[in-house]
Amino acid sequence: MTQGRHPRYDLDDVLSNGVRLSIVAALQGVERAEFALIRDSVEITDSALSKQCALLETAGYLELTKGRVGRRPRTWLTLTPAGSDALARHLNALSAIAGLQMADPASANDWPHQDRPQQDQRQAVPG
């Protein structure tokens, strides 16, 4: 992260949606996971997961693979390297935002807004 730059600029637009962040985070530690497992873990409906997966696939963060186990069709979700990088950046940015509060609770309310001058932002970001 560039010094003086507010970490919110490093947040990923696609992952700013909580459901999409959960889907990508769920896939972080596995090579692939079945659609039903992600649906149950994120606690959403089939159609909502399909919609979010389509968006993540379009963004290049997710790959969908269709297969079969016996006679049952299965869809597998895999996090792409681009998705993994985006997640790491997004989580780092969230950590930085959350960390400011932990490091100095008083400074939490002093976060510069987007339209403030750059000088103000540098003062607000801890070393």
């Binding site: 919110r8 909580g18 962040l21 497992l37 969230l94 935002i97 987007q114």
Partner: peptide, 28 residues
């Protein structure tokens, strides 16, 4: 406009992300 979570929101999102990653990772 750039999305800007509060520090509390950010901490909650991090916690949820780690929780869900641990749950799915546990299934492996």
């Amino acid at each position: 406009m750039t999305y800007e979570p509060t520090p509390q929101d950010a901490a909650a999102q991090l916690s949820r992300a780690h929780g869900i990653a641990a749950r799915v990772g546990g299934r492996a």
